[in-house]
Design a protein around this nucleic acid. Sequence first.
DNA 1: CAAAAAATTGACTAAATTACTAGGGATTGG
DNA 2: CCAATCCCTAGTAATTTAGTCAATTTTTTG
Lengths: 157, 157
Amino acid sequence: MRLTTKGRYAVTAMLDLAYHSSKRPVALTDIAKRQDISLSYLEQLFAKLRRAGMVTGVRGPGGGYQLSRPAHEINIAEIITAVDETLDSTRCGGKGNCQNDQPCLTHELWMGLSEQIRAYLAGISLGDLLSRHEIQQVANRQDREMQGVSIGEESVN
Amino acid sequence: MRLTTKGRYAVTAMLDLAYHSSKRPVALTDIAKRQDISLSYLEQLFAKLRRAGMVTGVRGPGGGYQLSRPAHEINIAEIITAVDETLDSTRCGGKGNCQNDQPCLTHELWMGLSEQIRAYLAGISLGDLLSRHEIQQVANRQDREMQGVSIGEESVN
DNA sequence: CAAAAAATTGACTAAATTACTAGGGATTGG
DNA sequence: CCAATCCCTAGTAATTTAGTCAATTTTTTG
């Protein structure tokens, strides 16, 4: 299966966006700082998310990104497939030609697993995550840390 | 998450072993041919499976591998973790130090997913798979193809 | 209008990981 | 003995990921 930092970053960034979305768009530089993700890399991810119609870019000063839909209408599986192309666990991409044009011995097993994963992640929306306690706590902590950083740069490290 | 060909090969090979196990051990060369897996690579995988106590090696002519336990007592999650080390989907290996020593915003989400996957695969045994129709069909086809190959490549016959 | 802020795009690259090869023992049945 | 088989260690080619760099376009603010 393909669940790498790319997909994880995308979900994290979208959640950050959802959490900080009010009237004004959220700039990628802010998300990058809060979530410790390289800005250039985030730009690539948001390009895909925009093409997938999940976010809208607003250019110019005061610009940034906004969710195209309410947070509870965006589920995690969508986000990952938007940047990662697939949540599939088969070797053949579900085509069933894993062993010279025939399904391999375990083809059905991986198909079942893929569906399991997809269903799980499709059943969770950004809105769901926002309402979780642990996540609010983490988001809060990150906001506080951001303020400290904005003047004093990163301390010793 | 880490579900790659390594884990898939291991499960496939174990299933092949379970399917062909009778009194005599099954040689890796046979599994390699039937499942289209490089012999050396299989040897590496079985070294791990052996260390994990799932199979027993028998040396010498007529030797090979045997399951250490009945097929219905070996589940898929075990096999994968034995060769792949982890079914974890977090970046931090579940430790919660994903963002400078603190859990990242989506830590809990990936923990939940990992558990979901683990539970699904732990609930399926080699024995379960053996009793599935599609799998018996594929195994049968592979056996027939093997016989054709052993002397004259694919003969019309 | 000019300058700045921010998205947008595309090409390139370093590092990591995977999948696989090579080659040499060690055992044992016939 | 000898050939089949497991067993072990190193090395390597290919792929993928995560990230950089640089240039451009669009829009807003002053």
